[in-house]
Design a protein around this nucleic acid. Sequence first.
DNA 1: GTGTTATACTTAACAGTGTTAAGTTAAATG
DNA 2: CATTTAACTTAACACTGTTAAGTATAACAC
Lengths: 201, 201
Amino acid sequence: MGVKERRAREKEQLRQQILSAARELFVNEGYENVSMRKIANKIEYSPTTIYLYFADKADLLDSVCKETLLNLLNTLEHLKSDISDPVETLGKSGRAYIEFGLNYPQDYKLTFVIRPQYQKGLGLDEGSVGEKVFDYLREMVSECIQQGIFHQTDVETTSQVMWSAVHGVTLLLIDFPDFPWTEKDKLIDTVIHTTIKGLKA
Amino acid sequence: MGVKERRAREKEQLRQQILSAARELFVNEGYENVSMRKIANKIEYSPTTIYLYFADKADLLDSVCKETLLNLLNTLEHLKSDISDPVETLGKSGRAYIEFGLNYPQDYKLTFVIRPQYQKGLGLDEGSVGEKVFDYLREMVSECIQQGIFHQTDVETTSQVMWSAVHGVTLLLIDFPDFPWTEKDKLIDTVIHTTIKGLKA
DNA sequence: GTGTTATACTTAACAGTGTTAAGTTAAATG
DNA sequence: CATTTAACTTAACACTGTTAAGTATAACAC
């Protein structure tokens, strides 16, 4: 009875093929400039085949973004090691978040800007990968509060402030590359340190 | 010789008509979901007429965004009155900026997110309205630094940090309306106060 | 091994898109 | 009144996302 399993494996393989073709095109040419036909051409299948694996173009985007969030989460999890200095860890996490966005600017925009436009149901639902990323942030912040380093006792608000700061600078740097920014690393560091300092007791 | 002037006036009138029809549709239905034909229908002209007034759809978006930036600038200029307490003014300006974004979320996104995607030449060029908005921010910050309230002496970096914070929270609130945000006003205030506190000497 | 069913995929089509080239109408000029 | 010029429209091109119907092939039951 290995037939069904082999078939399922083959199906999954093609699904992944579609997904990675889509990601590559989305990233290189922009979501709006990628047609289902282009994706189909790339994988050498007819356009309609894609619809056997994904509901529509937005669903394809959705799946690509889910992967991106998993990558982001993975990147962040690697930093969680030392709880001794939670502020340092929070700062490093913030930097890692921003750098993730700058290393994969198109993926970041797809996930945090383009997708919300097409998927009103956001994708930060309970149990989602997006929620896990924010949970990670909550944990970091919670540690800082528990150790009495932060003056605010509200984990939620504090986390959201932190997210605002890193999200803001990431998007600005991506969207306005020609703006006369301060030296990039300096700006990033200042954003993080300013926010953390502002949160301290 | 008033003929030419009347003609010019009529042309300008139609240009404005197209522009406001475009804005209304962009805002209500989203840039991607608005076709040139829809705009044309609304103003009861043929689709190609639009091309006599605007180079293409992106140019139309560009013009709409310029108006938005003018509105934003105007909103901010009204707060510049009292220089006695520059930190207070900066805080109020930050709040006004965020509230502008939340009051006209679609306009804000068009200007600061959608447009950069289509117009690689950004629109914060020298002499542009966008630059004037940032100049306003620079002035506020500069005042705070000159009075020795802020510890950083770098106006640029400090302004950019401020911009990151307000831009970040604005976009997050717009893009993820279903996220379990802290009470909105509290979040906004905390973002502003945290950033300002972090910048203080 | 043959007939049947289910699976995977494709072809053709619909209604729509941004944009251009060519054509038309009406107004202003000489 | 004739001619030029400006404003606008019609028709078309090559493309879009998506659906319905059709086709081949592989797996199954007997």
